[in-house]
Amino acid sequence: MCYLTTVKHSMFYWSFGIVLALLALTAPAALLLGFLGAMAKRSQVAVVRWIGSIYTSMVRGIPDIIFFMFVPIALGQGIEYVRHKIKCPDVTEPIRQGNDFVVCAAAKFPLGSADQWVHQTYGFALATVAFAFVFGAFVANTIDGAMRAVPANQLETGHAYGMTRRQVFWRILVPQMWSYALPGLSNLWQILIKATPLLFLLGVQDVVYWARELGGSKTSRYEYPHGDWRLWYFMVLLVFYLLMTWGSEKVFRRLSTRFARGQATQAGQQHLEAKA
């Protein structure tokens, strides 16, 4: 039993926390980005509308994995580039020298002298941004669709009562939209869960990293030598993810019945009838 309680194993158990943390941080960030994206798509300013459209349609054409790989490096280099310009204005050598990206030592971020946990947290933060960016676009698509699904006569009624555009948006459209958006959002949540193992590709020491590390065959240099057990460790991950998706499906089913309350939809009607 001691095998399962080594420090390395406890790091494996902790890495499940990393997955949950990623979910907890990405979901609200993506929701916010998505809402902004959907608003941008409805904007009266053409440029904003285009930005919204490009943002939301980009993820439809390009695999998310490309974003996951691109965004963290690009963002990391962007931050170091800006810091380089600020902190080392005297350095005249170009930052891109052939194949190297060279910024002065003071511009490194995090600093070379920073603790290892700072570096790891930074890596995780960049990954979170990449996830939020991609899922924000998906959410924007869903919310945009939901806003369009709100019956037009509801909005017209608002206008007829003398409400301003802004009031109609915030008081009628947004509250109504959620129940239409919920099925899409719940689906996105499931997809987000299933995208979390991609953290591994970004160099974060997540569940996949530790499953590979622990499962790989061990010679007697290690305390507990064993053969190639990666299959079993991945089985554990499979079960973990199945439980996660199964559990959240249940939660969302409950939520959707609650949201249906008082809505002029079929589900809302059923809700009323059930009560009566």
């Binding site: 979390t196 193992p197 993810y241």
Partner: peptide, 22 residues
């Protein structure tokens, strides 16, 4: 359908490779 839709494709690939190797 539940197993393949409920788990990440990434994990499925890993599992399949390890299984095929065996």
């Amino acid at each position: 359908i539940f197993v393949f839709r409920g788990s990440p494709l990434f994990i499925q690939f890993f599992l399949a490779y390890e299984a095929f190797v065996l």
